[in-house]
């Protein structure tokens, strides 16, 4: 469980750092980014986990999302892990951008050859929080989760599968119903096999329909000009329909003119940090 600091840069009054560690869950070296707000120097801070989207590493978020200033303002530590195991030498892991490396889909794979390393769900919900709580001035009871695209899907399922574990959840252009979209179907069939019923355990829309637990408040931002929205990869309407029926509070904002990029994320990052701060600092 030893951490190796890869980089450290003063940022927004605190520090943006990147660490490397040997993951027991993923059986490979993993990097993660952590932003420590100024408040972390004197006291314990809540943690927001950020799950990135397809093809991303821990770098994309910390360099493009503009989260540090608002996070520093609200005294929130942000932890951004990588999106998949890397360098595991699994055959075909680098063949496509939407499966394998950079596309872990935040599931625990059950199929060979992925099941040994591709356990991103356990990594982000168990191993990583333990590691973070052990090494940083955190308040373990106050954590929340957010993400983009595949990471948005990850954030939603982590929250829906662990009632009460995350105080808040939000997402940018999440894959809301992976069972129904090409990306999800490709990934789930690869990682989880052909039995579709096992997929549902990682589908936000299905999970929402069965959710029971403390009140969740979900904030979702979606660019209207997102090509993946029109390609029916994201399917937010399905999730909204279920949440409306189940009375799970969601504010879904369709932002005109925005696409799927980090420029879109950057534009609404402060709103999301505020959404998390409302519950993390309550």
């Amino acid at each position: 469980m030893s951490l190796t600091q890869v980089s450290s840069n003063k940022c927004a009054g605190g520090f943006q750092k990147v660490f490397e560690h040997e993951s027991t869950e993923l059986k490979c070296k993993m990097k993660f980014a952590v932003h420590l707000p100024p408040k972390a120097e004197t006291g314990k801070c809540p943690v927001m986990y950020w799950l990135s989207g397809l093809t991303c590493t821990e770098q994309n978020f910390i360099t493009k999302a503009g989260s540090q200033v608002p996070a520093a303002e609200h005294g929130i530590i942000i932890v951004a892990p990588d999106t998949s195991p890397r360098g595991c030498n699994i055959e075909g892991e680098d063949e496509s951008w939407d499966f394998g490396t950079g596309a872990g889909f935040y599931v625990n794979a059950t199929e060979d050859p992925w099941k040994t390393n591709y356990r991103m769900y356990s990594y982000v919900t168990e191993e990583l929080p333990k590691l973070i709580n052990a090494n940083f001035p955190t308040d373990p009871d106050r954590m929340s989760i957010s993400g983009h695209s595949m990471g948005g899907h990850g954030a939603l399922i982590c929250a829906l599968k662990n009632p009460g574990k995350y105080k808040a959840v939000s997402a940018f252009a999440p894959i809301c119903n992976p069972v129904q979209c090409p990306w999800g179907q490709k990934a789930f069939s690869g990682y989880l096999g052909s039995n579709r019923s096992t997929w549902e355990a990682y589908d936000a829309t299905v999970l929402a329909a069965a959710y029971s637990g403390p009140q969740l408040d979900i904030l979702i931002d979606q660019g209207r000009d997102d090509q993946f929205l029109s390609a029916s990869q994201l399917l937010p309407d399905n999730l909204i329909a279920v949440c409306s029926e189940k009375k799970i509070p969601v504010v879904f904002r369709l932002q005109p003119g925005y696409d799927h990029s980090y420029f879109f994320i950057y534009s609404f990052m402060a709103d999301h940090i505020k959404h998390h701060a409302k519950y993390l600092n309550a």
């Binding site: 409306s244 009375k247 509070p249 504010v251 904002r253 369709l254 932002q255």
Partner: peptide, 20 residues
């Protein structure tokens, strides 16, 4: 079909959906 919520100023509202 549904309950629609607008947040209007100057005749313009963001497009947003509220589930509850």
């Amino acid at each position: 079909t549904r309950h629609k919520y607008e947040f209007l100023h100057n005749g313009w509202s963001p497009d947003l959906r509220i589930t509850v």
